[in-house]
Amino acid sequence: MNAQNIAIDAAAWDSPWRRRRVGEKVLLSGSLVMTALLSDPWPGCVLVAAVALVLMLGPARIRPLLVLGVMGAPAVFLLIGTLPVAATWHGMGDLAWGNLGWATDGFALGPLRITPGGVARAAALWAHSLAGTLAVILLATTTPMVDLMGWLRILRIPDPLIEIASLTYRLLFLLLGTTLAIREAQRARLGDVASWRRRWSIVANALGSALITTWDRATRLQAGLEGRGYEDALLTLSPTRARSWAFLLTGGACLAGIWSSSLAWTLWGAR
């Protein structure tokens, strides 16, 4: 990560979809997220994932490597989070720790047992989660945070809250830049070869300095904005973006497709 470039954020600013209405993108991604949550893993979630990927790599022109990189964090969580779901707990008393190997109902790992049912549950979770995450990333890589903040006004969230969130976004990049620069300066003077004990105070010093700098900046920003006429509201022009029926209809068609295939699959399976 780098101050100028949180990968998703940079993609959102460069996205050809930036000029689309935020509401339309929220509607599309939101529906895909809900579909990933509510539909069956097969074919619903798989189709959601496919649609999100195709839209991102196709019309939204997001680099495949970026999508792959961004999926890293959720994948790690899924790995850790689904492990306990895949395994059943048979209690300490039931099985000795030395118990390792195939049992009648699955693979035993001491008091844990990995069963086919557990693996199926874990796989279903993976499907829901990966599809949902891709649908969220579709929104995140095509819509800068500030556009979303502006859109939140529709939900009647009070202005001061939106302003604070927007300022947080601006200060975030300043603070991140400062913190990373301080860490680099510490490494340049061999901060990373200090004793383990000293390294802790070095991290604390970096954070403390960054905090003081940001505090100071926030105060100076206040003074700077007062000079530009700031009294109690951070007014800006919000861009007007045309409604796109093509976009809405295509999105609608995708969703209808996913749901009808899901329905068809369920009916066919039940027959």
Binding site: G177, T178, A181, I182, A185, Q186, R187, A188, R189, L190, I202, N205, A206, G208, S209, T213
Partner: peptide, 17 residues
């Protein structure tokens, strides 16, 4: 790093004590 030292432009990002 013991032989080559870089001092960057912005002192605020290099002082931390």
């Amino acid at each position: 790093r013991a032989r080559v030292q870089l001092v960057l432009q912005n002192p605020d990002e290099q002082l931390f004590s």
